[in-house]
């Protein structure tokens, strides 16, 4: 090349904006928090833990830690794949119902003589179809996912009630099977696995990058040639499948397969965990680690308040006030530390 054809561009000084922004190497603590939004939530979680430990003296006892992990794990498992979906600009309200349906499919599979692990796999595959329906109706027919999944929310709930006669049944499985699939600490280990898998997908694979791109700017992502339909439908399948699996694990943990398990309570907890964790509800940003810590905060509040012996009737009221206070604290804290940068 005789001369650099971009010489005239190279010769012109940087634009005003470039000079106004200071060196990227100088980082304040506020900027550290901005890059790692999960940190301030972790501080909140630790404060909550300390508070309940001091007030009740029982939070860190072995028996209660197990209980805490079993409250947290299903919320966290539902929240992790939901991060990808919400970062991609959609939502799934039906996860609490696939959570309840899957263990019944296992129950009927086992009664039909199918080996338990195979029945588990079949149940997860079948509830994945709920995700396919959610995805196809939303992506190809254009029904907003809030409405699509509200429909499957009621539909799947009804289906579970019909096939179960609205009666709980004992969960099949004992011994090693139960130890791996839900008893004791295995539940939280599965949740950690979900955290690792979906964090990896979100931050280190194309799939996760495309979720954020689609949630941030759908048209541009499509114009860039990203297979947006495929990503979106996949994003609906993950939460349905994982929620079904979490439901199966949970039914082993509590040793009963209950048509009223999960439902809207766990669905709202999972979505709350995602949003508390810092994922943008409108799409374009997501953090699986944040959602996991968010699930821990919600579980700590539930468990801590029960340890304090809060009256059952007042429980929801106090939990609601606690969630609001914690989030106001979290938002205020990070804004204070960030100074004007976030404005």
């Amino acid at each position: 090349m005789a001369k650099d054809p971009r010489a005239s561009v190279l010769a012109s000084p940087p634009t005003l904006g470039a000079r106004l922004i200071k060196s990227p190497h100088a980082k304040s603590f506020g900027e550290f928090l901005f890059r790692y939004r999960e940190v301030s939530l972790l501080v909140v979680a630790l404060c909550l833990g300390t508070y309940f430990q001091i007030m009740t003296g029982k939070l860190l006892s072995g028996a209660n830690l197990l209980n805490l992990s079993q409250i947290m794990a299903p919320i966290a498992m539902l929240a992790c794949p939901m991060v990808l979906l919400i970062a991609g600009g959609e939502i799934d309200l039906s996860v609490g119902q696939t959570f309840a349906l899957a263990p019944f499919l296992v129950h009927f599979g086992q009664q039909a003589g199918i080996p338990l692990v195979l029945a588990d796999i079949l149940a997860v595959v079948i509830v994945s179809l709920v995700g396919v329906i959610n995805g196809v109706v939303t992506v190809y027919i254009g029904v907003p996912s809030f409405v699509t999944t509200l429909g499957t929310f009621f539909g799947i709930n009804g289906l579970t009630l019909i096939i179960s006669n609205a009666e709980p049944v004992p969960t099949p499985g004992t011994g090693l099977y139960a130890m791996v699939f839900g008893q004791n600490w295995s539940l939280i280990l599965w949740a950690v696995a979900a955290l690792a898998i979906f964090h990896f997908i979100l931050k280190h694979m194309r799939w996760g990058l495309y979720c954020v791109a689609i949630g941030g700017n759908y048209e541009t992502s499509k114009e860039a040639g990203i297979k947006v339909e495929r990503i979106k439908i996949g994003n609906f399948i993950f939460p349905a499948a994982v929620a079904g699996f979490a439901g199966i694990l949970d039914s082993v943990t509590v040793n009963i397969t209950d048509p009223l398990a999960g439902g809207s309570a766990i669905m709202f907890s999972a979505i709350s965990a995602v949003v508390i964790g810092g994922t943008a509800l409108a799409g374009g940003f997501g953090t699986v680690i944040g959602a996991f810590i968010g699930a821990a905060v919600l579980a700590l509040l539930q468990d801590g308040l029960s340890l304090q012996g809060v009256n059952a009737n007042a429980f929801s009221l106090i939990l609601g006030i606690a969630i609001l206070s914690v989030m106001i604290l979290n938002v205020t804290l990070s804004r204070q530390l960030l100074g004007r940068k976030r404005a």
Partner: peptide, 22 residues
């Protein structure tokens, strides 16, 4: 290059440059 430059505001400069050619 489109009128809106076809950038995703939420993604970093590197991620935008390599969007769908990672």
């Amino acid at each position: 290059i489109y009128q809106d430059l076809a950038l995703v505001d939420q993604l970093s400069i590197v991620q935008n440059i390599f969007l769908n050619r990672e």
